[in-house]
Design a binder for these strands. Structure first.
Lengths: 149, 149
DNA sequence: TGGAAGAAGTTGAGAGTTCAAGTAAGATGG
DNA sequence: CCATCTTACTTGAACTCTCAACTTCTTCCA
């Protein structure tokens, strides 16, 4: 017995899909066009830039950047080719790699950030009220709560 | 002068990104695993199934399925290989193609739907209150309003 | 009428993502 | 102490998506 979506749920669901896909695509296009990187790479650079020593273990980086290990591994390989990230082996646990943000990587991130923030504002925050932003935060927290399923 | 995100906006933004990516990935994984199709293909089949005569012009289909023309073109090519969709030329305007859902395609959609709806419930509606669902609908409508930018 | 402009759709190449499998190294426990 | 389990990460292949041409056809208008 499938419990189908009622009309309201259907509308909500489709609006959510359309909205989130639109935002994703806007951001990806903006970053690709203006800074030559996909949004996933930008997210990796951001998280690295915030880490102590601008370095992080691959698996931890994958977690905070909402990435699978495989995706991260491929991405860091590309970022390494550009000289934006460097990998270093971990002496304490030789299974572990550290990903380190280089100065060039930091510079690329700094150059990309203003345009990206502008896109985030235009596609999200300029379109909703502060109250709605609060609601959205609570809704997203609920969606993310309890990582099972 | 870049207007950066304040702490609240930052938190909201990251939660939104994480939540929407998580839902997308859950759905994609579920459909791929249980029905052998990505979510984008499922969306195409759904829209076709709702159209009169289960047929739609490619460009209209692209719009309602939140797809670019190019993406749709590639996708329909794959769906055609599986026998789920058929293309027909339009006599009235010979630039136009009709995409037509076949009986096999309809059957594949019907087989996939229950599992998909279950995933939608588990990843979204089971996690938020009815009031939050209403809020979310309004927020997404605001995000989608006025297609400029 | 005849071109320019625009619309519909396709195509190929390049890039990113996923999945499954594989390597290597640290933990566990009889 | 050594076999097994688990963790960390990588790799390659298959697949999807994007972007920029490109073709074909229609519309516009001078």
């Amino acid at each position: 017995m499938t419990r189908w979506l009622d009309e309201n749920e259907q509308r909500t669901w489709r609006a959510f899909l359309a909205a989130s896909q639109r935002i994703q695509e806007d951001l990806d296009r903006q970053l690709q066009r203006d800074s030559g990187m996909p949004h996933a790479y930008y997210a990796i650079l951001v998280r690295l830039s915030e880490a102590p020593g601008r370095r992080m273990r691959m698996s931890e980086l994958a977690t905070v950047a909402n990435s699978s290990q495989s995706r991260l591994s491929h991405a860091v390989a590309r970022l390494e080719e550009r000289g934006w990230v460097r990998r270093e082996p971990c002496p304490a646990d030789r299974r572990v790699s550290w990903a380190v943000l280089t100065d060039e990587g930091f510079a690329a991130l700094a150059a990309a950030a203003p345009g990206h923030v502008g896109a985030v504002r235009r596609s999200l925050f300029d379109r909703i009220s502060p109250g709605q932003a609060e609601q959205l935060a609570a809704i997203c927290a609920a969606i993310l709560r309890d990582p099972d399923s």
